[in-house]
Design a protein around this nucleic acid. Structure first.
Lengths: 204, 204
DNA sequence: CGGTTTTCGAACATCGTGTATGATAAAAAA
DNA sequence: TTTTTTATCATACACGATGTTCGAAAACCG
């Protein structure tokens, strides 16, 4: 009932002022509290208090805390760059700077990143973002010209790239952005594409 | 009081039969339930019912669910190989098979892995294991002869390697071990050490 | 303005947590 | 075996969070 109403309003462009206000305040409260205590530790009650919204109002809009979170993601989905692997330019190595766009995007949203990429982020957030990264990586790899050693299942390459990127990304966020997005992009590219030694010559 | 007793018993080798039995069944129950529903979804009450242990007994031994979990880790810590990066032998590429021991170890404990490495694992478990991997990787990298391109902070190399390994590992577990540990070891080595192309020659 | 829709506040049932206590059963010590 | 120690049990309790319901008040929109 409310659910259907909500969708209708979103698409028919008829957002009651009160509705928009409630939803916006709740999202803001969740974000702020997540930054402070970490998503898992945040309770619905705390969101209610912070947002100064009645309990019944919350449940008129969202099923639970996770619903509020995901709805927030969906709303900011438009703000996401269409493709996180946009080729910004040619790096020194001659490869496209496939990681740069990603790091720049995160850099532009430090507040959000701190909340949802740092160690304060809960499982749901974590998996959600990790999944986005995996999907993007899979797409990118299927349409780029980088060759992979034979015998390696493509999916494992995806996991490798996305796993490394995610690790670098979360480290960067958790340590308060100690390097420029450009440097992070270059480094991730070197590590992932060129390998640890820059050359594949066997050691010793 | 109980806490002190417990430690004393552990170290003085005087474990009351009942104590050992309680703790063991509680651990087993948590493990089983975690496999079934995922760690986060498991409640203390469910553990109690499954283990057929009184509520008060549980809290006489553990502070909460997490305490039970970590105590379990500590007990099985002895079963862990001293170093997950043991060089098993020389791979085809001439590099030590640094990933093989890891995959073999996980392969030998599929039940545990399913519970604590799969998507059913909660944040605590997730971070805990990820951290072990990071620490091991850091140590290994500091004592091995692999050279890294200059200008890359060592910690980022650690994050890269551990991140990739963790991603490959969880994928492998989540997909029910579709490859042999040997193949996974070889692949991870190729991806991480040799890079995506096996050669660092710029494409195009 | 006046009808519609949202919000509010309060109450309620439910569930999980963590603590306390005295009785009971089992283990260790004598 | 008897005694003493100690863990377990069952129950009860206080607390906090969840999600639902409902009528009255307020805000919105035309």
């Amino acid at each position: 009932m409310k659910q259907a109403k909500r969708v209708a309003q979103d698409e028919l462009k008829k957002p009651d002022r009160r509705v928009h206000r409630s939803r916006r305040t709740l999202h803001e409260a969740l974000l702020a509290l997540t930054v402070e205590r970490g998503y898992d530790a945040v309770t619905v009650q705390q969101v209610l208090d912070r947002a100064e919204v009645a309990r019944s109002t919350f449940y008129a809009h969202f099923r639970d805390k996770e619903d509020l979170l995901l709805a927030g993601f969906q709303e900011m989905r438009g703000a996401l760059p269409g493709n996180l692997f946009a080729v910004v330019g040619a790096g020194h190595s001659g490869y496209p700077d496939f990681g740069l766009a990603l790091f720049r995007h995160i850099d532009a949203q430090r507040a959000l990143a701190k909340a949802f990429l740092g160690s304060t982020a809960g499982n749901i957030v974590y998996n959600h973002l990790r999944n986005i990264l995996v999907v993007e990586t899979r797409e990118w790899l299927s349409t780029c010209k980088i060759k992979v050693a034979k015998g390696i299942p493509p999916e494992l390459v995806v996991q490798h790239v996305a796993g490394s990127l995610f690790a670098l990304l979360t480290w960067w966020v958790d340590h308060d952005f100690p390097h420029t997005p450009e440097k992070m992009g270059t480094i991730s590219q070197q590590l992932i594409i060129a390998g640890l030694e820059g050359m594949a010559a066997p050691a010793k």
